[in-house]
Design a protein around this nucleic acid. Structure first.
Length: 559
RNA sequence: UGGGGUGUGGUGUAAUUGGCAACACAGCAGAUUCUGGUUCUGUUAUUCAGGGUUCAAGUCCUUGCACCCCAACCA
């Protein structure tokens, strides 16, 4: 479509370059990727980057991408998360090749391979506890110590391992370890644990198993079983790659050996993207839930009104590299604005109302003015909006004593009420503190529709609603959940950087009548205010997705 | 402390692989506008540091520095 899209398609990141080379030199004859979430939480914006990479890469090379739940740890996993992840992935707009797959479906194969490792003297049962094993692993630059159980016979190992499976031993009493090299400079290769004992209920295999494979023992093999060629993961797994390869080299694989490639995870300013931290925010009641509009989860962003397409465009735009970096949340927001500007219908809503009385308006008259739905999309047509002598306007659209460059309503000044009439402010009633309560103005009947026949101009056009026809409702204005660009940068704890005003609730909003028919979940633009998403449940509750660029706020902020 | 990874405007990402450092966001200035929105135009600002090879270095060599990851029976 546009030049930008074409350049984006031509852009070569290091992953695509690698895949192209693999195909050219015959290392692989096809491309298969996978997205492998652990079902212990919901998907967030960081996952969206990985998802976009995995799925786009596959489709660009006519390959496939499957969804695999990495459910090797029964402690924290749950089917609710499985369903939620599928739902979020679907919403984002990606369809896995085939049904969802589960690492737990490979437990039997993994077990058989483990026995074969034992038989070949490549794995042993260690009776030591976690602390001891950790201490013996040594440190960076420090030698490791071999476990006294490292030299057990295959027969004894096999017997013990089978009894571990049968559930004869308590949690933490024994593990199965790979016998590699306790002096290896890469800590991951100092006899890593392959199996641990857990008498925990697993969300899919129930109580059948008492031992569970670790990530390292399960992941590469799962890739291999499924026929994955390019296994993409984030940078922190870099040092695991040697182990990934080592395990695969020891086993008879049904397909060509997959290869792991790491890329930098997505970090955003003012945002945390760690399932642990997000789960903490939910558990501590800092937010209302995983779908709180302030959450960077896919369901939070959806409820907030972020279009899936904008998230996808953002993810492919930022590309993939190996540099640890933190993108400004403003960039994401600009994608959201650009998208919404094209598609969001415009509506008039007064969030903080003040009464405007037109003193020369004919008693009891109700006019209906025609308003354009979206100036960016003429096909969206127009609508009729009722206008009368008693209106609501935005409180900060009027000032008794305005600063320089204030273009809005003030005594003596004429402004345009959008698509209706020019009005000139005469005066205002104030309370004991001098705060305006009601604003009075006169209108010019000749300006109906919003233009003066004599060609005179006004500096400002304002939105309004007719008091008698307005629909009451609420709006929630969101600001960053964390005020610091890097939450936790100062103290180590992101909670120290929580923004106490991340949500502002406005209970006294007045909406134009058309908003009564707004479908739940739909995003509209409240003219001059921003984009707002109609809540999925509560009628007439609108969440501010993102504000408009606001030059007046910048000007006012400087003084 | 050993190993691995990464350094390009304020931020992030590119640079035909040794050939004029560009794109977006943010900023600033102006124009247009029935949204202080949109759109348009202009503009500010960049190769971590030192040394070397070369007609030519962001790219190659070398020395240093900074940051990130790894010593879970998490993923």
């Amino acid at each position: 479509m546009s030049d930008a899209t074409e350049t984006a398609d031509l852009r070569e990141d290091f992953v695509r370059e690698m895949v192209r080379k693999d195909l050219r030199d015959g290392t692989y004859s096809r491309v298969q990727t996978r997205f492998p979430p652990e079902p212990n939480g919901y998907l967030h914006i960081g996952h969206a980057k990985a998802i976009t990479l995995d799925f786009d890469l596959a489709s660009e090379f006519d390959g496939t991408c499957n969804l695999r739940f990495d459910d090797t740890n029964p402690d924290t996993e749950d089917t609710a998360f499985v369903d939620g992840i599928i739902e979020d992935l679907t919403w984002l707009g990606f369809t896995p090749s085939g049904d969802p797959l589960y690492a737990s479906d490979y437990f039997e194969q993994l077990y058989a391979w483990a026995e074969s490792m034992i038989e070949r003297g490549l794995a042993y049962v260690d009776d030591q506890d976690a602390e001891t094993i950790s201490a013996q692993r040594g440190g960076y630059g420090q030698p490791g110590i071999e476990s006294p159980f490292r030299t057990r016979s295959s027969d004894e190992n096999l017997d013990l391992f089978r009894r571990m499976r049968a559930g004869e031993f308590g949690e933490g009493t024994r593990v199965l370890r790979a016998k590699i090299d306790m002096q290896h400079e890469n800590m991951q290769l100092r006899d890593p644990v392959m199996y641990r004992i857990r008498h925990e209920h697993h969300h899919r295999t129930g109580d059948r198993w008492h031992i569970y494979p670790t990530y390292d023992w399960a992941h590469g093999q799962s890739d291999a079983i499924e026929g994955v060629t390019h296994s993409l993961c984030t940078l922190e797994f870099d040092s695991h790659r040697a182990l990934y390869d080592w395990y695969l080299e020891q086993l008879p694989l049904p397909h060509e050996r997959p290869r792991q490639t790491e890329f930098a995870r997505l970090e955003l300013t003012h945002t945390v993207t760690s399932k642990r931290r997000l789960a903490g925010l939910v558990a501590d009641g800092v937010v209302d839930g995983w779908d709180d509009p302030r959450m960077p989860t896919l369901r939070g962003l959806r409820r907030r009104g972020y279009p899936a397409a904008a998230i996808r465009e953002f993810c492919s735009y930022i590309g993939v590299a190996r540099t640890n970096s933190r993108h400004q949340i403003e960039l994401l927001e600009s994608f959201v604005r650009t998208h919404l500007n094209r598609v969001a219908p415009r509506r008039m809503a007064v969030l903080d109302p003040i009464r405007l009385v037109i003193t020369n308006w004919p008693e009891g008259l109700v006019d209906h003015v025609e308003v354009v739905n979206n100036p960016e999309d003429p096909a969206d047509g127009t609508r009729m909006v009722p206008f009368s002598g008693e209106l609501f306007i935005e409180r900060d659209d009027f000032m008794l004593d305005p600063p320089p460059k204030y273009f809005r309503l003030t005594p003596g000044r004429e402004v345009r009420l959008r698509a209706a009439y020019f009005v000139t402010c005469t005066h205002a009633d104030t309370d004991a503190d001098g705060q305006p309560i009601t604003v009075f103005a006169t209108y010019d009947p000749a300006t109906r529709g919003g233009n003066a026949p004599d060609g005179r101009k006004v500096k400002s056009t304002m939105h309004w609603v007719s008091a008698a026809h307005a629909v009451d409702g609420r709006a929630m204005l969101y600001d960053r959940l964390f005020s610091a660009e890097v939450p936790g940068d100062r103290t180590g704890d992101p909670l120290d950087d929580l923004n106490p005003r991340s949500r502002q609730v406005l209970d006294n909003c007045r909406f134009e009548p058309a908003l009564a028919d707004c479908p739940h979940g739909e995003v509209v633009q409240f003219e001059r205010l921003g984009y707002f998403a109609h809540d999925t449940r509560e009628p007439q509750l609108f969440h501010r997705t993102v504000g408009l660029r606001d030059e007046w706020a910048r000007i006012a902020g400087r003084t």
